[in-house]
Design a protein around this nucleic acid. Structure first.
Length: 806
RNA sequence: GCCAGUGUGGUGAAAUCGGUAGACACGAUGGACUCAAAAUCCAUUGCCGUUAAAAGCGUGUCGGUUCGAGUCCGACCACUGGUACCA
């Protein structure tokens, strides 16, 4: 037996192995290598000044473990990292502290990189991507221009969410609840010229592509709901004097006989077109103005009651009943969806019902099964058509078919599919973003920057404070705005808006495959070699936006023949949030933030990694528990101390053989299933058993160390080297288990009487049913309980239980 | 409101197929070692009960299916996230 080995010093060994790994480049992926490839992607971080968060550790640990295991399994693993570094927090910090965002960003990236290395992540640091480098955003601009060429970029004047405090325009996503995402202040409505990407053109394809994406049902559902496909029909309603028509979209064309009025959005163009006929035009105009003034917040919070105005002098005709019906304007109908007009069927739509009750409009039952004097009846499963002419007696499903046939035949309408998803507002009035490569010429109008002139670089200036008008800071920089029209060579002006933060992250996974290419965003050969991303892990909060946006860009590039696969990701998973110890979201204001660097300093990176994976189900949110960190460290100390009673032998200790094989199987399977918490627990059980054993062999310890390596690589490398190996574990194959060694020799069987446990017994594995029954019936406790009664029925589950039913 | 998810000890959590509820870890209590502390080791630890046991109770609530339910079905309650009148 060897002499006492002191418990390990994490500061020394972690530094030692990190230096060795990062200097040797052992984790760098090799293009065109003969080994099979495996591409693991984690969402690249925004390098905030606060540095790394425990959430980052959790987010990266899953594919970190998988990457290390895959390398041991012989794969050429691409596990890249980069920085999504454009964005408002940096800009705000820069303004406040009078430092240029370039300097702030470079600093933050430096700190972040050091921290990622201190945690021992096996990223390929040789292909780091930074979205704020001209070499990178040149291609972001290039893809934007490709979209422009294909008619997927357009400019439109609309009301946008404007934060008077940050002086920036916000997308709907960034101003939820009428509050600015960044500063929390109230958002107002401002009329602006806005660039849009026509993502709606890809709605059907984005929905369709989901079937090739392996992910949990909640991820699928969130994407589906965001795209929001609904099938229905366009129906044309004539205006009573036959001078005009009003087109509606409805998902329930079958209820048309019950359409007793129409509602149009306040912004609907027919108001202006028929203004001369409208008798209460003043009142209508007032309502329109009131709607415009409302922020989204007010519409949501204060407008639970339906409001609306009847348009006097303008009636429509229900094309099926031929009866005249009134037309209302109301802000519960929105101009951006469908046609901005609906046929209201109060009997079978809750919103229409509420409106009809308020304005005392007729409610007609056209689907039987409910009580329309009480509420709208919206069940489409069991109802049957009534009061509906030729559709009477049909189910809703059949009636839909029947009415669409009729509408098409008579030219009144057509079948149609609509999507809830809106086009993507693609500009911000900020400095710290990719300049939009567009030039305005007085003669030629909007002119895209020629491809060969890219990148349009951000000027390195001293003043990047926002303007009072809500224009981009770039607008005040003459040297930037002044340019020459590429078409006519006359003086022209540059677009001064920049792209939203989502831009750079929409294609970064492609750049990783070929990060230094000066001629293309990535070469076809390399994209062909690396193929699809095998596994993509990130936050649940990005499942709707970033995931859809990046799939959109990839699909677009695919359609242009510029990438190899239509869908970029094979599999997508999402980690759960780490909450503060108080169970609340971690935030500065709550003062419950845990700094991972402090844990690394005190307990070591291995401890932090093991603990964060052990803390709970990877996909569920879980509170931080500082006391629990010690448990992870104790486990590593126990593993270390196994070296004290090492026996040189190339065989498993007989009493440990079974548990070791079970652990190889269990840990391997748990990693693949993202059950990292139970994988760690299985390692703990194995180490506990080895600790209890009087001696352990080289082979026992080697195997345990190989299994621990993906979780706690530094200590594993150190023990591995102590065991006399001169090579790194990463070059050593993942252990395999022997199925024949998994079987237990003896098992415990429970004896139930009427499903209640009354006794237990230990028997040989695979003892036959008759023997089990005999043994059960001879148990003293069972005999006492039966008190002479004969079981009516006996259920035997081999190796599990015997249930006596009396 | 709608959609999704989650409710299990003092705490974080386990529990492939419906078959021993609480693995593993934290904490707590008692003990060993120590002048003492830390570290380590041993024992106990769902509740109730008991000298000890037995019995009884127990996976948000109420009901159902089953020989047997944390797991399946129905209704409800609570919490978390997403969304905002999408026709």
């Amino acid at each position: 037996m060897s002499a006492f080995v002191p418990s390990f010093n994490h500061k020394i060994i972690e530094k030692k192995w990190q230096d060795q790994w990062y200097e040797s480049g052992v984790f760098n992926a090799k293009d065109f290598d003969q080994r099979p490839k495996y591409y693991n992607l984690v969402e690249f971080p925004y390098p905030s000044g606060a540095g790394m968060h425990v959430g980052h550790i959790r987010a990266y640990s899953s594919l970190e473990v998988l990457s290390r295991k895959r390398r041991m399994e012989g794969y050429n693993v691409l596990f890249p990292i980069g920085f999504d570094a454009f964005g408002l927090p940096t800009e705000n910090y820069a303004i406040k502290n009078k430092v240029h965002p370039r300097i702030v960003t470079d600093n933050n990236i430096k700190v972040f990189t050091e921290q990622l290395k201190a945690a021992g992540f096996s990223f390929d640091f040789s292909r780091v991507v930074d979205t704020t480098q001209p070499d990178y955003y040149r291609w972001t601009q290039w893809i934007f221009l490709k979209m422009y060429d294909q008619g997927l970029v357009y400019r439109s004047k609309t009301f946008v969410n404007f934060c008077p405090d940050c002086k920036v325009v916000l997308s709907n996503e960034e101003s939820q609840g009428g509050e600015c995402d960044r500063c929390g202040n109230e958002v107002v409505q401002l009329k602006k010229d806005v660039w849009f990407l026509k993502i709606t053109e890809y709605a059907a394809k984005l929905l369709d592509g989901l079937k090739d994406l392996e992910s949990s049902s909640r991820i699928h559902t969130e994407q589906e709901n965001w795209i929001g496909k609904s099938e229905g029909a366009f129906i044309t309603f004539p205006i009573a004097d036959n001078s005009h028509t009003l087109s509606v979209f409805t998902t329930r064309p079958d209820t048309i006989f019950g359409a007793t009025f129409m509602v149009i959005a306040p912004e609907h163009p027919i108001i202006d077109e028929k203004a001369s006929q409208i008798k209460n035009l003043d009142e209508i105009r007032q309502y329109q103005e009131a709607t415009k003034r409302k922020t989204e917040f007010e519409r949501i919070q204060l407008n639970k009651d339906k409001t609306g105005i009847k348009i006097e002098g303008l009636d429509a005709i229900n094309p099926l009943t031929k009866k005249p019906i009134p037309i209302f304007i109301s802000d519960y109908v929105v101009i951006t969806y469908g046609t901005g007009a609906i046929m209201a069927v109060p009997g079978h739509d809750e919103r229409d019902y509420e409106f009809a009750k308020k304005y005392q409009l007729p409610i007609i039952e056209v689907i039987s099964g409910g009580d329309i004097t009480e509420a709208a009846y919206t069940n489409t499963e069991s109802g049957m058509l009534v009061n509906s002419g030729f559709m009477n007696g049909l189910s809703v499903e059949l009636a839909k078919q029947s009415i669409i046939d009729y509408l098409v035949k008579t030219g009144i309408g057509t079948a149609s599919v609509q999507f809830k998803m809106k086009d993507w507002a693609f500009n911000r009035q900020r400095y710290w973003g990719e300049p939009i490569p567009i030039i305005y010429c007085e003669d030629c109008g909007v002119v895209p920057v020629p491809y060969e002139d890219l990148p349009v670089t951000l000027p390195m200036v001293e003043h990047f404070e926002p303007t009072e008008t809500g224009e981009s800071p770039l607008a005040g920089i003459e040297a930037f705005t002044r340019c020459v029209c590429p078409k006519c060579q006359k003086p022209a002006r540059r677009e001064t808006d920049t792209m939203p933060q989502w831009a750079g992250s929409s294609w970064y996974f492609l750049r990783y495959m070929d990060p230094f290419n000066k001629h293309e965003f990535a070469s076809k050969e390399k994209m062909h070699y690396w193929g699809k991303i095998d596994w993509y892990n990130g936050g649940m909060e990005h499942v709707t936006r970033h995931l859809i946006y990046s799939r959109f860009w990839n699909q677009f590039l695919y359609d242009q023949g510029l990438v190899v696969h239509q869908e970029p990701y094979k599999k997508r998973t999402a980690q759960g949030l780490i909450l503060g110890e108080d169970g609340e979201k971690m935030s500065k204001s709550r003062g419950n933030i845990v700094n991972p660097m402090e844990i690394i300093d005190e307990f070591g990176a291995d401890t932090l990694r093991v603990f964060i994976l052990f803390i709970g189900d990877y996909e569920m949110p879980t509170p931080w528990n500082s006391a629990g960190v010690k448990g992870a460290r104790r486990f590593l100390d126990k593993l270390w101390r196994l070296q004290e009673k090492l026996v040189k032998k190339d065989q498993f200790t007989p009493s440990l053989e079974n548990i070791i094989h079970k652990t190889i199987k269990g840990v391997g399977e748990d990693i693949e299933a993202m059950k990292f918490n139970t994988a760690v627990s299985k390692l703990m059980i194995a180490v506990n058993e080895a600790t209890a054993s009087s001696e352990i062999t080289d082979k026992d310890l080697e195997t345990l160390v190989l299994l621990t390596y993906p979780f706690a690589p530094h200590i594993s490398e150190e023990i591995w080297s102590n065991l006399g190996h001169s090579d790194s574990i990463v070059l050593h194959p993942w252990p395999v288990y022997d199925v024949s060694k998994l079987i237990e020799k003896q098992v415990e069987i429970v004896i139930n009487i009427n499903g209640k446990i009354r006794d237990r017994m230990i028997v040989d594995f695979n003892t036959n049913e008759e023997t089990l029954i005999d043994l059960a019936l001879s148990s003293k406790k069972v005999v006492d309980h039966l008190a002479g009664q004969k079981p009516k029925k006996i259920i035997v589950i081999p190796n599990k239980l015997v249930n006596l039913v009396i």
